[in-house]
């Protein structure tokens, strides 16, 4: 699942078809669950933010431990992967509902500009993994003073 390098000015960049159809998505998802489709691919929601200095990638995933994430940067592709385990129901307990995904996942993002790989940092807080990638100097906007004669 790759993000194509986008033109930030384009509306397509923020267009998210499935979010807009969320009630339908809920309906479809519940329909699939009823059909017992357990193997549906799991893709935690991913956001990308950008300012003059950084590219910030956020992955929504509750109930993980820091060490369960695998973060890698190769050329211009950032990959966030890992596995979420569920607390297995033991013999004394009976599971009534199991809607939370517990499986491995992998999301890749093609970064929109060059970044400083060695200064990349990550944090996990309130169930959101945030990877901060400082832009390379040449990718930052520059202000040029021009003297008018």
């Amino acid at each position: 699942m790759k993000l194509i390098t986008y033109n930030p000015a384009s509306e397509l960049a923020t267009w998210s078809p499935f979010q807009r159809l969320s009630p339908w998505r809920d309906f479809l998802e519940s329909a699939f669950e009823l059909a017992g489709t357990e193997s549906r691919q799991w893709a935690p929601a991913l956001d990308v933010r950008e300012d003059d200095v950084n590219i910030t990638v956020e992955l929504e995933l509750a109930g993980m431990r820091k060490e369960d994430f695998d973060i890698s940067l190769e050329d211009d592709t950032l990959t966030l992967s890992g596995r979420r385990e569920s607390k297995a129901a033991d013999r004394q307990s009976e599971s009534f509902r199991s809607e939370r995904f517990s499986d491995s996942f992998s999301r890749s993002v093609t970064l929109p500009c060059a970044v400083q790989a060695d200064k990349t940092s990550a944090a996990y807080k309130d169930g959101i993994l945030t990877v901060t990638l400082p832009k390379a100097e040449q990718a930052r906007p520059r202000k040029i003073d021009i003297n008018l004669n």
């Binding site: 998210s16 929601a45 933010r49 300012d51 929504e60």
Partner: peptide
Amino acid sequence: RAKPAGAARLVHSESS
């Protein structure tokens, strides 16, 4: 939800 900190522009969004 906590309100997102900072003024960074959202260029791709899947979260609600």
